[in-house]
């Protein structure tokens, strides 16, 4: 019998170990699995490498995970926003590592990781500091840079609806990195706004097929990160 549904976020993240590499979905607040991240803060795993497009806002979600000193390194394309304070401060003090990756290269490295492709050539970043030291090759007169796949031990992803097989649908631009991250982790953990009966998601409309998902947990009223940030909330809750 296949049933990927677990009942709590803490149960969902319970096996995340020290030193793990974790894909965390989201583009800013859209699609950020805030409740799963908070459960990871409660769990306390340390020395984590986080792959995520941004580095969090305010003092909740991903920013709170970093503030709690659980993150050794972040692999991301845009680690600052108007309201990010935690990462920039630690970065300037040299207390967190940053691997800066062009956004499309980041997405493709994760996609490749999930698709069994160890590396690929891309035109993005050629002749820039982000290609320094990397192998290049000319195809049809144009230079490309070699980029390697990016797999993770875990992926934390937020979606709109899931069933017990792990089939997922997303909501608008909250989809962003979710589908590729689901494919590229040993253990993919998903928080869904609702869990529906098998068969209720039209097979034509499934965005992430259940084979890529290990666990789903229902979080029916996920926090809006920007509201938490505006209210100056912190996690663990102040």
């Amino acid at each position: 019998m296949i049933n990927k549904v677990v009942s709590t976020v803490s149960e969902a993240v319970a096996d995340i170990f020290d030193g793990a590499t974790i894909h965390i979905g989201g583009f800013g607040e859209a699609g950020s699995p805030v409740e799963l991240i908070h459960a990871l803060i409660d769990l306390g795993s340390r020395n984590l490498t986080i792959v995520s497009n941004n580095a969090g806002s305010g003092n909740v979600g991903l920013a709170a995970l970093i503030e709690n000193r659980q993150v050794k390194k972040i692999i991301c394309s845009f680690p600052r926003t108007a309201i990010s304070v935690v990462f920039p401060e630690l970065y300037r003090r040299g207390e967190i590592e940053l691997e800066l990756v062009p956004q499309g290269t980041l997405a493709e490295r994760i996609r490749a990781g999930g698709a069994g492709i160890p590396a690929f050539y891309t035109p993005a970043s050629v002749n820039t500091p982000l290609a320094e030291g990397k192998e290049t090759r000319v195809f049809n007169g144009k230079t490309y840079v070699l980029e390697h796949a990016l797999k993770a031990d875990f992926a934390l992803v937020k979606c709109h609806a899931a069933d017990k097989y792990g089939n997922l649908v997303y909501n608008k631009t909250a989809r962003n990195f979710g589908p590729v991250m689901c494919t590229a982790a040993e253990t993919t953990i998903v928080q869904a706004r609702k869990i529906v009966e098998v068969g209720q998601i039209d097979p034509e409309c499934v965005i992430t097929p259940g084979i890529f998902v290990k666990r789903v947990v229902e979080v029916s009223k996920p926090a809006d990160e920007s509201i938490l940030v505006a209210e100056k909330r912190r996690y663990p809750w102040n």
């Binding site: 859209a30 499309g104 997405a107 631009t173 989809r175 990195f177 590729v180 809006d224 990160e225």
Partner: peptide, 28 residues
């Protein structure tokens, strides 16, 4: 505002009739 409908600058935007959503690898 819809917190799950933003543009690349993280501004809240709308989608026109005939719009489509896709993941980051497709977008790039």
């Amino acid at each position: 505002e819809d917190y799950e409908l933003v543009n690349a600058g993280k501004k809240y935007v709308t989608a026109i009739p005939g719009a489509s959503y896709f993941h980051h690898a497709d977008s790039f």
